[in-house]
């Protein structure tokens, strides 16, 4: 597991607590899980919140199990355990997309096989539906070096993780592992810096919302 000690932008406390409580939609859970692989500080925070969950579980009103529950348990436990499925190995690259990576199940062909769609000069995206539990959308955005995204705000529930490259904006500099969990009223215009494209993983909570965000971002480019 990679450990980056220079991560400077982290999820909000409430976001990490919602993750630990199992309350985040799938898309945002993936983004948080990907950040956690890189951030020991947030892993500790999540472990603490899970301890709150443990304390809460003890307070749940018990729902009586059937009389034969323990007997049927041992009957079930005695049956042969299924062999675990072999982990698939994905192409090695700087996304560190090994089989255990939270993104691996969504990018089965690996990162270099992504069919990017250009949405504006210097801006491409790849949309991944994550509409299982609590629908959401995952999106990869690729911003060419030197390209600045026009000013826009974010919905309260959007999360952005930097996977490759970097950008700077009014909030600061965002690099690999940094996560933007911005307040709704933050207006920013990120500029991709460095000499390689900046690739971000973005989670939005609902498709409708997502469309409007694309509109907000792309509108100034294509003059809608």
């Amino acid at each position: 597991m990679t450990v980056l000690s220079d991560i400077r932008h982290h999820p909000k406390d409430l976001t990490l607590a919602a993750y630990a409580a199992g309350q985040l939609d799938e898309a945002r859970s993936v983004v948080i899980a990907a950040h956690l692989r890189l951030c020991a500080k947030c892993r500790l925070a999540v472990a603490d919140f899970e301890a709150v969950g443990g304390a809460c579980l003890e307070t749940v009103e018990p729902a009586a199990m059937s009389d034969s529950a323990l007997d049927s348990f041992w009957l079930r436990a005695g049956k042969q355990e299924a062999a675990p499925a072999p982990a698939s190995i994905l192409a090695a690259n700087d996304f560190a997309l090994d089989a255990a990576h939270p993104l691996a199940r969504y990018l089965k062909e690996g990162v270099d096989a992504i069919a990017w769609k250009n949405v504006a000069p210097g801006l491409a995206q790849h949309v991944i539906p994550a509409d299982g539990y609590r629908p959401g959308v995952l999106r990869l955005l690729k911003i060419s070096p030197g390209v600045r995204i026009p000013k826009h705000t974010h919905g309260d529930e959007e999360l952005t993780l930097i996977l490759r490259g970097s950008y700077t904006d009014e909030v600061g500099e965002f690099r690999h592992g940094d996560l933007a969990d911005l307040d709704e009223d933050v207006l920013h215009a990120p500029l991709a810096t460095g000499d390689q494209p900046c690739i971000c993983l973005i989670a939005t909570s609902a498709p409708l919302r997502f469309r409007s965000i694309v509109g907000r971002i792309v509108q100034p480019f294509i003059g809608l």
Partner: peptide, 15 residues
């Protein structure tokens, strides 16, 4: 070293 019993079992039930 990572969790107490209640915490660990909570994460299993949550997942």
């Amino acid at each position: 070293a990572k969790a107490s019993a209640a915490t660990w079992i909570f994460t299993i039930a949550r997942n």
